[in-house]
Design a protein around this nucleic acid. Structure first.
Length: 418
RNA sequence: GUGGGUGUAGCUCAGCUGGUAGAGCGCUAGGUUGUGGUCCUGGAUGCCGAGGGUUCGAGUCCCUUCACUCACCCCA
């Protein structure tokens, strides 16, 4: 037996209804907020991610599905969507027509991590990005939009965490201070964090190793180092969230693993997924467009873990079987022929109809109708057809009536209220 | 990459100190010739993850390996 690849997953028909509902709702809400869909390839040059996410991040260092593609060089299955959206914004010169672009995209991402609950090597994200708006109002609105989606999906039990990472003007001062503080506590830090010291000291802040948490306990806070611009931006975000009625917590240790973030970052956390507590996350990345050779334009975006969201939702909503409207019970050749043709006519008109193609007893066919959750059953055997009438049974009320065999499909259609 | 757990019928699992496999659900056929969801009766289904070893004999012990899973790490 050939099995699927480790960390990959089949999304089965029973689950798909939920996925479709979530997707439809997300599209509706996003479009109401003025976003438009963009569809992007899942294969990109590896360099795109090295330059955006950061080449010392775990994602780029060891989690990409990358391979040499002849003269094109190293290409990779995308580990996230933002870089691709930015690439497209620049390459297609979307800014030329209008620097302000609100875009969303839905699709699979790939990271070669060790799978566990809520984490797959192919996972899905619902992603939204806004270009060309620097205002903190947009930061708040994005979070507000996210929370609107979650609340319409009846996801409670989530927490909004926010923080500000500062900008190139103020972050270096913070880094310096952090570095000198941590330097004196090297023995307390785990092996990993010692490596981080030189590469990306901010990451030490959200290390979960107890001794590191201890070492970091009275570390300087970025909030004490924010420049005036960042400071007022962040307070404006907080103020606006309050006005919009979005509850949030400030988490000074929230750092996030992608290098391109500036100023506001946020994460939506849940307790329903074990260790994988992030269902959505994002932040501002004002320098990225320019860093990727585009115009200097501010931007902000987020991604929702589509898988994870569906997993949370499936925990409190039982899977439902989509019922068929009419099930035909046909015994005998003539009966099967007539039933089959009626079924096709009904299907064309948007009515779910089916029959059994084997040779089974009435009882077992009734059982099958029940299993399929049929609303109506048509009993049409050869003898009935000869007499010119067939039986239409309402499976819920058990009422049966006799209807003319001629033009069954039309007759039934008019009697079924969907 | 590092740890822990688990691998027995389609699914969920039982199988104590080694003696050639069981339950529930599901599936299927019937319950006195046409009518389902409750109930009753019967039936099918397993290389007991794979390979090797110990033993008269292994699902049960030992070794190897693979898969799944949870956690670390990181993120959505």
């Amino acid at each position: 037996m050939i099995q699927l690849i480790k960390g990959f997953k089949d999304i089965l028909p029973e689950e798909i209804t939920l996925w479709q509902q979530v997707e439809t709702l997300a599209r509706t809400i996003f479009e109401d907020f003025g976003y438009r869909e963009i569809r992007l390839p899942i294969l990109e040059k590896a360099e795109l991610f090295a330059r955006s996410i950061g080449d010392t991040t775990d994602i780029v260092e060891k989690e990409m599905y990358a391979f040499e593609d002849g003269k094109r060089g190293l290409v990779t299955l995308r580990p996230e969507a933002t870089a691709s959206v930015v690439r497209s914004y620049i390459q297609q010169r979307l800014y030329a027509n209008d620097p302000i672009q609100k875009l969303y995209t839905i699709g699979p991402m790939f990271r070669k991590e060790r799978p566990q609950k809520g984490r797959y090597r192919q996972f899905y994200q619902i992603d939204a990005e806004v270009f060309g708006i620097e205002s903190p109002l947009m930061d708040a609105q994005m979070i507000f939009m996210l929370m609107t989606l979650f609340s319409r999906l009846n996801v409670s039990d989530i927490t909004v965490l926010i923080n500000s990472l500062g900008c190139p003007a103020c972050r270096p001062r913070f880094k310096e201070s952090l570095l000198s503080m941590l330097g004196s506590k090297k023995e307390l830090l785990c092996e990993n964090c010692n490596r981080r010291l030189s590469k990306n000291p901010l990451r030490v802040l959200d290390c979960k190793v107890p001794s590191c948490r201890d070492a970091v306990k009275d570390a300087p806070s970025i909030s004490d180092f924010l420049c005036n611009g960042c400071e007022s931006h962040f307070s404006e975000v907080k103020k606006t969230l309050k006005h919009l009625g979005v509850k949030y917590e400030i988490d000074k240790s929230l750092v996030r693993g992608l290098d391109y973030y500036t100023r506001t970052i946020f994460e939506i956390q849940t307790t329903a997924l074990g260790a994988q507590n992030a269902v959505a996350g994002g932040g501002r990345y004002d320098g990225l467009v320019e860093a990727l050779d585009g115009p200097s334009q501010p931007a902000i975006g987020f991604a929702i873990g589509f898988d994870r969201l569906c997993e949370i939702l499936s925990q409190n909503s039982p899977i439902s079987v989509k019922p068929v409207d009419v099930f035909f019970i046909a015994t005998g050749d003539e009966s099967k022929k007539v039933s089959f043709e009626s079924i096709c006519k009904l299907n064309v008109q948007g009515i779910t109809a089916d029959m059994d193609y084997g040779d089974r007893s009435l009882k077992s066919l009734m059982k099958r109708a029940d299993k399929l959750n049929a609303s109506f059953v048509v009993i049409a055997d050869d003898e009935a057809l000869k007499s010119g009438n067939v039986t239409l049974r309402n499976m819920n009320t058990k009422d049966q009536i006799s209807i003319p065999a001629a033009g069954i499909a039309e007759n039934i259609k008019s009697r079924i209220i969907r």
